[in-house]
Amino acid sequence: MRLPVPLTGVVPPVCTPLTPSGDVDTHSLGRLVERVLAAGAHGVFVLGSSGEAAHLSDVQRGSALRVVVETVSGRVPVLAGAIDMTTARVLGHARAAEALGADALVVTAPFYAGAHPAEVADHFRRLRAATRLPLIAYDIPASVHTKLLPATLLPLAEDGTLAGLKDSSGELGSLRRLLVALRRQRLDRSFTVLTGSELTVDAALLAGAHGVVPGLGNVDPAGYVRLYEHARAGRWREAAAEQDRLAALFALTETGDPAVMSGGSSALGGFKAALHLLGVIDCPATAAPQRPLPDTSVRTVRRLLGEAGLLPG
């Protein structure tokens, strides 16, 4: 389907369920997609950070994207992560995503080798010239070690190279300044800005962001839809209350012991443990070399789900 301009609402970055042997669990992934759509999601993002794209093979990536596109079946836009280190490698993912029926691409700056802002801009322009799909920049400096600055983004928005931005920088002040600049240049209605920071969605929407891509939206998509609808209607007190409830639930990403596992293992393990406890996915396994959550952490995840009203008791 054609990507709305701008794209608004809640676009969950779906997890990639795996079997115990490490294959993509296509049945569980289909159930997860149906669940977020039933909650009122306005789009689906596959093969992002929450989808463990960095840990999946090209075959696994293709399998996950194929399932999401087929399950969505044109009901909402499907955004596909084409995330890799270099322009040439990203081009391969972009062409595969286009062939499988994605509606837009989500792409970071080049990483590992690093890149000058002029090279980052050239990276996006080369990608845009090679595909018919809209291109959404993914600002996640904690992972790629490059911050996408307004001086880079604004010219790319103005000339149509970029259709939007997924901001996962966690820098709300920087995001607000970009939104102000977009309004001044009258680009705010043609350039989508989505926040990826689950804990400050109400503030980002108040500042002018068009929507949210919340990893926690795998676990509680309906909560983020309620938050968005409250904000859109100007019910800021209700939006803040929903945000507070989701902020408490976000603690499920922090149950892992940092002495034995990474923050990413803890967060993704928390999402998948929650989805397993909710009966959405069959297996909570994460991709290697991430470590599984211990039983004590899973019990904490269960308690947090109960406190958020997602499990009885």
Rank of each mutant, 00 (worst) to 15 (best):
L105T: 11
A102H: 04
A239I: 11
Y224M: 05
T300C: 13
V10A: 03
G40E: 04
R75S: 07
L149Q: 11
T146A: 05
E171N: 15
C283P: 03
A104L: 06
E254W: 09
L154P: 09
A239F: 03
R291Y: 10
V10F: 03
P294S: 13
R189S: 13
S266I: 09
V106Y: 04
L310G: 00
T200C: 14
A247Q: 05
A142H: 05
L305P: 03
A96I: 14
A240W: 08
R302C: 06
R89W: 05
R189L: 14
G211Q: 03
P17E: 06
S28I: 04
V11M: 09
N218H: 07
G48F: 13
E198K: 00
P77T: 13
L311Y: 13
S262C: 03
T26P: 00
A259Y: 01
A267Y: 04
D103M: 13
A241R: 14
L275Q: 09
S174V: 09
V36T: 01
Y138M: 08
F250P: 02
R303A: 15
P141C: 12
A163N: 15
P258N: 13
R302P: 01
G164L: 15
L65A: 10
A39F: 06
G306S: 15
L156F: 01
V24W: 07
G160P: 12
P117A: 07
G92W: 10
K166M: 12
L179E: 01
E171W: 11
T192N: 11
W236G: 14
R125M: 09
V106I: 11
Y224G: 00
G211D: 02
R61I: 10
T255Y: 06
V219P: 01
R75Q: 08
A231L: 00
P117Q: 05
G313H: 14
D188C: 04
P284D: 08
L79R: 02
L91H: 03
P155N: 04
L3F: 02
S169M: 12
L91N: 03
L277C: 00
A285K: 08
A115D: 00
A222L: 13
D257G: 14
A38E: 13
G43N: 06
E158Q: 15
M261H: 09
I281T: 05
G309H: 03
A137Q: 10
L3I: 11
T146M: 05
L79F: 04
L154G: 10
R303W: 11
H230D: 09
T8L: 05
V59F: 07
A241I: 08
A115Q: 02
E307R: 08
D23Q: 15
G92R: 14
D282C: 00
L216C: 02
S262G: 14
V225T: 01
R245T: 01
D220S: 08
V193T: 08
A267P: 00
